[in-house]
């Protein structure tokens, strides 16, 4: 699944990183705790989160996250957008809640990125 597919499935809005929509995503992870993302996420993962601060972008940078989807209509501020652009991480926004957004992506074939 590409980032563009993720966008279409969720009816999401692209905040930045339009040029990276052809990137392949292999897994997805829904989390508001960045500590858990750092512990469990694998490569080429879509990160869905309701947390909205610069550390979400930093965490995604460290984990080579393919794109970030902000759920529940959360909107990143300009500092987050600037950092995401610098790190070449596309940001998407959807009005869906976390559970629904994860379910929609799962139903479309994307699986969890956790390793235990």
């Amino acid at each position: 699944m590409t980032v563009e597919d993720v966008k279409d499935v969720l009816g999401a809005r692209v905040i930045c990183g339009e040029e990276h929509l052809k990137r392949e995503a292999h897994t997805a992870c829904g989390a508001d705790m960045m500590s858990d993302v750092l512990a469990f996420v694998k490569d080429q993962c879509v990160l869905l989160t309701g947390l909205c601060n610069t550390q979400v972008i930093r965490t995604a940078q460290m984990m080579d996250v393919v794109c970030i989807v902000f759920v529940r209509g959360k909107k990143p501020d300009q500092a987050m957008i600037d950092l995401a652009n610098e790190c070449e991480i596309p940001l998407l926004c959807t009005g869906h809640r976390m559970f629904s957004a994860c379910g929609m992506l799962y139903e479309s074939g994307l699986r969890g990125g956790a390793s235990y």
Partner: peptide, 17 residues
Amino acid sequence: VRALGFGAGMGLPNMKK
């Protein structure tokens, strides 16, 4: 700190991992 997404008690275990 938890409200900012950290403090889940995974920091040092992650550093070791």
